[in-house]
């Protein structure tokens, strides 16, 4: 499997990348680690005519203390997330979930921004972002805007990012000492989740946010579970609602009934581990 012919532009800066996107419009695709895009290109499921390579923009690879949040450059690799002492202390679910993506070689190259911008409902990191109540910074021709995680994922492999916008930063509210859990269920370690559940207990009495992996067309927060918990429901009672509002896919790994069941089991496990 070979990608279709494509032009290649290396962006020297974020602004140059945005300019290139503006110039080429829908025909252009940003290339970061490439671990979401290149497999699609090899099967010719994606056939951009121009690739704008932002992989060398070193100034978009960082993990910084932003006061009440951790600021992560969009080009930070999964490996860097996984091994970050800062994340392990203040947003541990992000470090842990990064360690669950793909395999080590994939984690060396794949980036947080690439994973989030791909918007795959079966990906791990979008769920961690949602459960963390994080946000992303999008930069376009008209400047920057902040998109809350809950508004980022708009459809199957679609996000709120405009065609000429570049994700530059991911912000994760600090959850130092708060309970958290990520339950990923798959058949092989390297695979995407059949179903996953991420839970982060907010330190400030906001309740617990629960996000689901592969339970619909987009990465999603489970509002049913969240509301039940806010209303004082037990973990078991809240988890029983985990499939509400979902539209799980059917494939060789399971039908909707099985995925719904898994969601309830995994959310219960996540809530138990997160101490909710």
């Amino acid at each position: 499997m070979i990608p279709a012919p494509v032009d290649y532009v290396e962006a020297e800066s974020a602004d140059a990348a945005i300019a290139a996107l503006t110039q080429h419009g829908d025909e252009a695709k940003l290339l970061a680690g490439g671990h979401s895009l290149i497999p699609l290109m090899k099967f010719r499921l994606a056939t951009p005519t121009v690739l704008v390579d932002i992989g060398r923009l070193g100034d978009l690879s960082y993990i910084n203390d932003g006061g009440d949040h951790i600021a992560i450059g969009a080009l930070t690799t999964h490996r860097a997330l996984e091994t970050s002492a800062l994340l392990q202390a203040d947003a541990p679910i992000m470090a842990h979930v990064a360690s669950q993506v793909g395999d080590p070689s994939v984690r060396h190259r794949g980036t947080l921004g690439g994973s989030l911008a791909h918007g795959d409902p079966a990906s791990d990191l979008p769920a961690a972002l949602l459960a963390s109540g994080g946000s992303v910074v999008a930069k376009g021709p008209n400047g920057e805007r902040v998109i809350p995680a809950s508004e980022l994922f708009t459809g199957f492999l679609e996000t709120a990012l405009a065609a000429d916008e570049l994700m530059t930063e991911v912000r994760i509210p600090k959850a130092t000492g708060a309970g958290w859990s990520y339950q990923k269920f798959n058949r092989r370690a390297q695979d995407w989740a059949i179903v996953g559940a991420a839970a982060v207990a907010s330190g400030n009495g906001d309740g617990t946010r629960v996000a689901l992996v592969n339970m619909g067309p987009t990465p999603m927060l489970s509002s049913a579970v969240g509301s039940a918990l806010s209303g004082g429901a037990s973990a078991a009672d809240a988890a029983a609602l985990a499939a509400e509002g979902t539209s799980p896919p059917e494939d060789l790994n399971g039908d909707a009934e099985y995925r719904s069941h898994l969601a309830r089991v995994l959310v219960k496990r996540a809530l138990d581990e997160a101490g909710s």
Partner: peptide, 10 residues
């Protein structure tokens, strides 16, 4: 790294 999932250019 998996060299089948990168362009040489990268």
């Amino acid at each position: 790294a998996k060299s089948c999932t990168m362009l040489a250019a990268q």
